[in-house]
């Protein structure tokens, strides 16, 4: 059995994206997801002594996060029971008088399967990104996921535009190769 070490200094860089993605697909609210992830890291810090090294850090943190998500749902559920039932079908005047059926979310828009697939895809992309050389991954992420302008990246990292495109090209090729087996 390989012994896993624990090192909280790198937690945010290494796991925050993974944990956030895990949470957002379960609670569907950015602010709540952020709070839960933050809580998880703090709880992990507090109970670091209990880390036995049987699982990887990530697995261990996810198991804490799972508890936090369950707790979150318990909490909002108990609030619901206490509160009086208040339904506002017509929040805005524009749609006043519409039938309730017309306001139901489109069930074909996003199904549970989509959600699961989405989580799997996100972690696959995450894994592939972590296999890239650091510089490539950084630039690819800035350009593709965070939508930075070419110029901004060039200025920040002090590289030329053609340099950037070469790196992007290599990163894209590697990413496509990495994802090819399961996702193309």
């Amino acid at each position: 059995m390989s012994d896993h070490k624990i090192n909280p200094n790198k937690w945010i860089d290494l796991y925050s994206d993974y944990l956030f993605n895990y949470t957002i697909t379960r609670v569907n609210d950015r602010a709540i997801a952020q709070d839960l992830v933050s809580d998880t890291f703090l709880a992990g810090l507090k109970s670091m002594k209990n880390f036995k090294g049987e699982a990887s850090e990530r697995t261990w943190l996810v198991s804490i996060l799972k508890r936090k998500v369950i707790d979150h749902y318990r909490k909002i559920n108990s609030n619901k029971g206490k509160a009086e039932v208040r339904m506002s079908y017509n929040a805005d005047s524009e749609t006043e008088g519409d039938w309730l059926e017309e306001r139901v979310a489109d069930p074909f828009d996003k199904t549970a399967e989509d959600q699961i697939e989405n989580t799997e895809l996100a972690s696959a992309i995450d894994d592939c990104l972590s296999k890239l050389p650091k510089k490539q991954a950084q630039i690819f992420e800035m350009k593709t996921i965070l939508n930075y302008e070419t110029e901004t990246i060039c200025n920040e990292l002090e590289i030329t535009a053609s340099n950037l495109w070469v790196i992007i090209h290599r990163a894209r090729t590697a990413m496509a190769g990495c994802l090819e087996k399961n996702w193309f």
Binding site: N118, L121, A122, I125, A176, L179
Partner: peptide, 21 residues
């Protein structure tokens, strides 16, 4: 393939933490 990669990444975009967050 390149276009497919773009689509795949676009489909998970809402699930990422922004830099400021």
């Amino acid at each position: 393939n390149n276009t497919k990669l773009t689509q795949l990444i676009d489909s998970i975009k809402g699930n990422q933490l922004s830099i400021s967050e």
